[in-house]
Computed example of a mutant assay.
Amino acid sequence: MHARILRELPGFTGAKTYMIQTKHVRSLQLLSGSAPGRPLHLSAASGLVRIASNLYVIADDEHHLGIFSTSIDTPGRVMRVLPGTLPESKDERKAVKPDFEALAFLPASEHLPFGALLAVGSGSTVARKRAVILPVDAAGAVNDAPRVVDLAPLYDRLGAYIKELNIEGAALQGDRLTLLQRGNLNNPKSACVSLSLSDFHAMASGAISASDAIELRIIEYALGDIRGVPLCFSDAVALPNGDLAFCAVAENTGDSYNDGTCVGAAVGIIKADGSLYSVLPLAHPHKVEGIEASVQGSLVHILLVTDADDPEQPALLLSADIDGYPFSQAASRILSS
């Protein structure tokens, strides 16, 4: 099967614990809804990528991508990425939505001269085993028709190793694409699944099959808990030195389909070698599901987007800082609380 399954649980070092304070930047208001009668905001923001002056946000309950300015606080707009109309009823919509839970940037390649956005479905139902590639132009604007990728062969293979698949994040680390599996109360371990970017492109084009030709690397993580609810990955982004900055939430649910109360959240660092460096709780229990980051000196400036699990509540854009880059000293740790 050509899979490297790494079952070690990389540990923390150090014992210092402190809270990360977030700042409210804006709510994700829209000029117009994704369909007649839809709210004038994104509510279930689940992935975030910044390119130049644009913030791209994928929502898990839409067929659209949200586009917001980084320089002016004006309502954003939406761009369709899949055809069709989703039901208005929350339960009916949940049953058939593509559940795009991750958004990453693919670097320039032979068929993507300026790179592309990659929206990834969670894999938690048959309808959620898709990805969409959105090519961008030299200015970072989406400029071509979406390309739908069938992830069922890859996700079905992962099902042999991961119980109750629920991919919630994606990031590019060098020449590898890392997907982040989110756990829950009954399956509290999270995991990073990585494959080479060249294999992903070959799989997406149909040149190879995910069933037998792709080497997978899987590392499981235990991120700690808040009030007995395990923290589990909700997104990640690569830093310039190859480390991952991630966000995680403690959501009181026992499966990958039903929502639960979010009792806490955290951000943290995974080193480029896969070791878990730090998990730092947020002072407020926002359900953060998308992360973007930039580095200035020793500070990692992060942006986060939220999902309140309520279509009437607009998603929030938050900011925070993590000090200590490039994270070579003793780490910080979250303790059970």
Rank of each mutant, 00 (worst) to 15 (best):
V132H: 00
V132S: 04
L134Q: 03
L134Y: 02
L134D: 00
P135D: 02
P135K: 02
V136F: 01
D137A: 02
A138D: 07
A138M: 06
A138V: 10
A138W: 00
A139H: 07
A139W: 02
A139S: 13
G140V: 03
A141H: 12
V142Q: 01
N143L: 03
N143K: 12
N143I: 04
N143V: 07
D144M: 13
D144R: 15
D144H: 14
D144Y: 06
D144N: 13
A145S: 14
A145F: 04
A145K: 14
A145W: 02
A145E: 14
P146D: 07
P146N: 03
P146W: 01
R147L: 11
R147I: 12
R147W: 07
R147N: 03
V148H: 11
V148D: 04
V148L: 11
V149A: 06
V149S: 08
D150F: 01
D150I: 05
D150Q: 04
L151M: 15
L151K: 07
L151N: 09
L151R: 09
A152V: 10
A152N: 14
P153R: 07
P153Q: 05
L154S: 04
L154K: 09
Y155H: 14
Y155V: 13
Y155F: 15
D156E: 15
D156C: 01
R157K: 13
R157Y: 12
L158K: 10
G159Y: 05
G159Q: 12
A160H: 15
A160Y: 12
A160K: 13
Y161V: 05
Y161A: 09
Y161S: 11
Y161F: 15
I162K: 03
I162T: 09
I162S: 06
I162Q: 07
I162F: 04
K163Y: 05
K163A: 13
E164V: 03
E164H: 12
L165F: 09
N166E: 02
N166T: 07
N166M: 06
I167Y: 04
I167H: 09
I167G: 05
E168N: 10
G169A: 10
G169V: 08
A170F: 06
A171H: 02
A171W: 06
A171E: 12
A171C: 13
A171Q: 05
L172P: 01
L172Q: 15
L172I: 15
Q173M: 13
G174A: 10
G174N: 09
G174T: 08
D175N: 13
D175R: 00
R176V: 14
R176E: 15
R176A: 14
R176W: 03
R176H: 12
L177R: 03
L177F: 07
L177T: 04
L177P: 06
L177H: 05
T178C: 14
T178S: 14
T178Q: 12
T178R: 08
Q181T: 01
Q181A: 10
Q181C: 00
Q181W: 01
R182D: 11
R182G: 08
G183C: 05
G183S: 08
G183Q: 07
